[in-house]
Design a protein around this nucleic acid. Structure first.
Lengths: 335, 335
DNA sequence: CTGTTAGCGCATTCAC
DNA sequence: GTGAATGCGCTAACAG
């Protein structure tokens, strides 16, 4: 014990944490002793004694994908501003821990609150999570505060942009019927897409929808699928495509280049996210504030942890933007 | 207490952890009671009592950049396979916590070991870290186990490839004289670059070196710098450039496109990493195993934590590869 | 202002 | 096989 420096354990505790009720000289003495012995309080014991861990947990299915990594960075920003630590809980898809084991994660008592990214629906109602302050990002469930972009609006803006450019045959890449996790983002974007279409008195055409995930490889495959449907005649391709993510759009552009389909002359492509790499592809995109979603979620969580108050709009829906670059233009002349 | 289910606390503890010395019926009874009360052991208290936290910490200056996010994913893979949890400690550059506050992070006792990514040199010798099992990734210090690519080899391979294609005027993008953190990777890659040059009886030319970080924006600026040095005459540009990261290379390619410099006809570009996006730029690159570095580091740490043995080669240096795509070709005819 | 006394919720000796 | 103590290293009332 650093109390070999003349004082009691309690005083050490107070001194090291700058609590009131310790004279400057005493505090100084304690500090010096601690430094000398290389003593640092055990955050673990402190957490046990205090009843809270000063740690928040982030549970997410992926941590390295751009969107997730960026949200986490935002969370991290505000969390460390508040002097809290951050634990990462992989879960679901590539996360290792199966969803059924989630209870076993025993988040209880290790973290004071949790940020849930793209949580599978069954988790959102799981016991552990309901006993802890939690806010979700990118997905939402009644009764749980959340922050996300307005995905319907995202789809609407993307399609509207294309429509205003004069396009009429617009493909939509993103639906995922095999979605085991109940993410709604692609579906909501599709809803917005259809709304814009109808507003222009067009009918959604199933033959212009292709199932993909969010990854670039799927974008390449999707264009191939469209080419097949058009019997490999560029002229029979839709004149534009909205992809639910920039990565997807990038895949489309890459595939287009290989097959001699010119972007944007033959095909306009618009993505979603404003991914870090989007500008280097001159990609037109519907942007969403990503770091901000993380920051905001962390701040809402902070508030929830300390005041216990639920945020007023239960879920905060951020507005997307439109960034026009060179991957979209009017439809090709010959159609 | 779940012992309201008929048994003592000790038995609960044993039963829930599948310890020997508990009859099947008892174990079952305990489990049921726990499930009913929604009881989960406090990992915090367990850690305190046992003396270890079953948690490892990752300290890194960035967590969302591709390289870092990917390494972390590798770490996470093996860590969760072992049933350990993972804490993220931002540090340095964008990390929020200043390096001088590092001791205050009080990693002590919260984590059983740490993985240090791109640690600034002064941290690598800091007290806290020296008292904990630690392995570094991407950078190394005598006395501390580490894993990284062979950066000299990286530079050598990149330049050698260009040389074999017939290039003689090769620019190098990456040195960072303003490097406050003591990262050596760019310098080591430059060393390899020079070695390849000399092997071909060429002399490194300072006018062909430009200072950049690792980011794409810097790549754009770097090409501009080279253009200026060439008085905006494409023909006076070097015929090839090696960039210390793919992002940098992508920036170069993008800038080239805007200025009418054709890649690879006018300028060959080679990057490093085999970044997720590299293939979509048809970028030739020197690849490095990134997830594997995270996995390997975590495994070495695991070994270190349990056997106390230092790994045999103190630092494991992974071999880079070469992935030839379409951003490199022979030098342009007219020179 | 500072020292004493109790736990925080478990894991571990030991007895039984 | 199971239960009753003891302690992990702190913080939070109290007491002085």
């Amino acid at each position: 014990m650093a109390k070999l420096a003349g004082v009691s354990q309690a005083t050490v505790s107070r001194a090291l944490r700058d609590h009131p009720g310790v004279t400057a000289p005493t505090r100084e003495r304690v500090r010096r002793a601690a430094a000398e012995l290389g003593y640092a309080p055990s955050a673990l014991a402190a957490a046990l004694a205090r009843g809270r861990s000063n740690t928040i947990g982030v549970v997410a299915p992926w941590t390295s994908r751009w969107f997730f990594a960026t949200v986490i960075e935002g969370v991290r920003d505000v969390v460390s501003d508040h002097g809290y630590d951050l634990m990462l809980y992989p879960i679901g898809p590539d996360g290792g821990t199966e969803t059924t084991h989630f209870e076993a994660l025993a988040l209880d008592k290790r973290v004071d609150g949790v940020i849930g990214l793209a949580l599978p629906h069954e988790l959102r109602v799981a016991g552990t999570l309901r006993r802890l302050p939690i806010v979700t990002v990118g997905t939402s469930t009644p009764g749980i505060p959340g922050v996300q972009v307005d995905d319907t609006e995202v789809g609407y803006i993307a399609t509207k942009h294309l429509l205003e450019l004069g396009h009429r045959r617009i493909a939509f890449l993103g639906l995922d019927p095999d979605d085991r996790y109940g993410f709604r983002v692609a579906d909501d974007r599709y809803t917005g897409h259809c709304a814009a279409l109808r507003e222009a008195t067009l009918r959604p055409d199933p033959s212009l929808v292709v199932t993909t995930g969010f990854l670039a490889e799927a974008g390449e495959a999707a264009l191939e699928e469209l080419m097949i449907r058009a019997d490999w005649r560029t002229a029979d391709l839709p004149t534009a495509v909205v992809a639910v993510s920039d990565e997807l759009a990038i895949g489309v552009i890459h595939a287009a280049r290989q097959w001699g389909v010119r972007v944007p002359q033959d095909l306009s492509v618009i993505g979603v996210d404003n991914h870090d790499m989007a500008q280097f592809f001159d990609l037109t995109t519907v942007s969403q504030p990503v770091i901000e979603q993380g920051r905001l979620a962390a701040e809402i969580l902070w508030e929830l942890m300390h005041s216990g108050r639920m945020p007023d709009p239960e879920v905060t829906r951020l507005a997307p933007g439109l960034i026009v670059r060179d991957s979209t233009a009017g439809p090709r002349a010959g159609i």
